[in-house]
Design a protein around this nucleic acid. Structure first.
Lengths: 256, 256
DNA sequence: CAAATAGTGTCTGTAAGACACTATCAG
DNA sequence: CTGATAGTGTCTTACAGACACTATTTG
């Protein structure tokens, strides 16, 4: 198959990864949910060096013996921390520099996940380190974070807000059944601004990624509301136009 | 500063990265240009194992002694291959799995760069391996690629086409001075379809990221065309609406 | 003049936003 | 009835797309 398969195999037999100076490689997660009318993320308090005792994004090293690929590592970490195994999960961006970890050159693959807050009763009482939810204020949280996790969080929030302007992403922050008002509220919480009801509902119906649950309504002390669920196999709708009058800031791209 | 700075320092003194099984880490580049009325990318023929003799994306390992961060590695690689040092450069996505490299678990940070084809006279005659331009056909090139580079290329082309639908990105594929017709042609070449002239020009002017070069025209055997240049410090404009009637395919996100 | 490309104007369709309106429940 | 939230209709504005039209050059 290869040009010279024999010498290629010979090469691999004598190859040792530890002959090279390779950076430390990890995967970190920004796990979003909406709780108490606020966008929140999951943080863990580190029980190991470096940054022992500091808050950090959940994450860890690739298990080269068990993880098939990066997504598998991210899913495994998410399951370990939350018990959730079918979230919305998207790779955010890689971060790597000589200075982000005091142990030396390190890289991390940042992912962001969206889960419904009622999916995670399992969290407390697990065997993991202390973990808790923290409200996102602007593009940060109220406590100092280890490593460059503040920068990662900032990038994740910006990416989330940007996606929410033109996609159906927020359905993943809700439980399986919800009303259109619930969904609108999530859009408003993530974006931090009001959204027009009429325009919102036209847009969502046009997008055709939800279906009514026939005859199922939510009753309260007012007019009952139709319950909807995400249409199966309709993962992520992108609209042609963004909501809101504002153009997004430019990418975290660097030049020079 | 830290909770216990003394033990943190003790920890770092005895820490050795080689005690862990870390994946091999590299940076790969998808370098786009427009030449001969076609979108093209730069490929190098590998002179080393593995995949010796195969075409591959230019790339290589992080130089932990000299590279400040991932972007620096990508820029260095780009400079080594093309001599270009101020391109549009954006991190695409991380790729990592147990099988993408026969040497074992490996990860790579894929970047994509846009350069004007007249910026790269320096390419031939360098000290690098054989490198050449290859036309992009659909989402691939006409030759087999090493590693998982076909998948990386595919993701890069999709990302580029998607961005072009709503941004000013293609200016980076042109030299410093160009006409609006030149720019329209680049949009058409990247997207692989015709674009309406009137709508295009309204959109570009509305975006306000170009400026006329006063009095400077390009003359041919027809009406002379106004020359434009990118407005300084106007890096990447995003429009509120996409061109073309089609919504983009969903992300390369995985679930399950 | 013709050929070629540059550049503009006019109309239509679509969807977002503003906002007022109606509908349906509990109490 | 009131209060509350669900849900709709109507008007305006913004802009993409289609397409015809004018403008300016060379030969």
């Amino acid at each position: 198959m290869s040009i010279d398969n024999r010498s290629e195999q010979e090469f691999l037999r004598t190859y040792n990864i530890h002959d090279f100076d390779v950076p430390l490689t990890s995967v970190d997660l920004v796990i979003f949910t909406v709780r108490d009318q606020a966008l929140q993320i999951l943080l863990v308090r580190r029980s190991e060096h470096p940054f022992r005792g500091k808050w950090a994004l959940p994450g860890g090293f690739i298990d080269v013996r068990h993880d098939r690929d990066l997504d598998a590592t991210a899913l495994r970490k998410l399951r370990e921390k939350t018990g959730v195994s079918t979230p919305y999960l998207e790779q955010l961006q890689g971060f790597g520099s000589a200075t982000r970890d005091p142990r030396g050159w390190s890289v991390t693959f940042a992912y962001f996940a969206l889960i419904a807050s009622d999916d995670i009763a399992l969290l407390h009482g697990g065997t993991t380190d202390a973990a808790s939810w923290h409200k996102v204020d602007g593009v940060a949280v109220d406590c100092k974070l280890a490593f460059d996790h503040a920068a990662i969080l900032s990038a994740a929030v910006q990416r989330l807000r940007n996606r929410v302007e033109y996609s159906s992403l927020p359905v993943h922050l809700l439980p399986a059944e919800f009303t259109l008002s619930d969904l609108q509220r999530v859009y408003e919480i993530v974006l931090g601004r009001k959204v027009d009801k009429s325009a919102f509902r036209k847009r969502i119906k046009e997008g055709d990624f939800l279906e009514e649950i026939p005859g199922k309504m939510r009753h309260a002390s007012n007019r009952p509301a139709q319950l909807y669920r995400a249409r199966p196999h309709h993962p992520a709708v992108s609209f042609m136009r963004r909501m809101g009058g504002e153009a997004p800031e430019s990418n975290p791209t660097q030049k020079q």
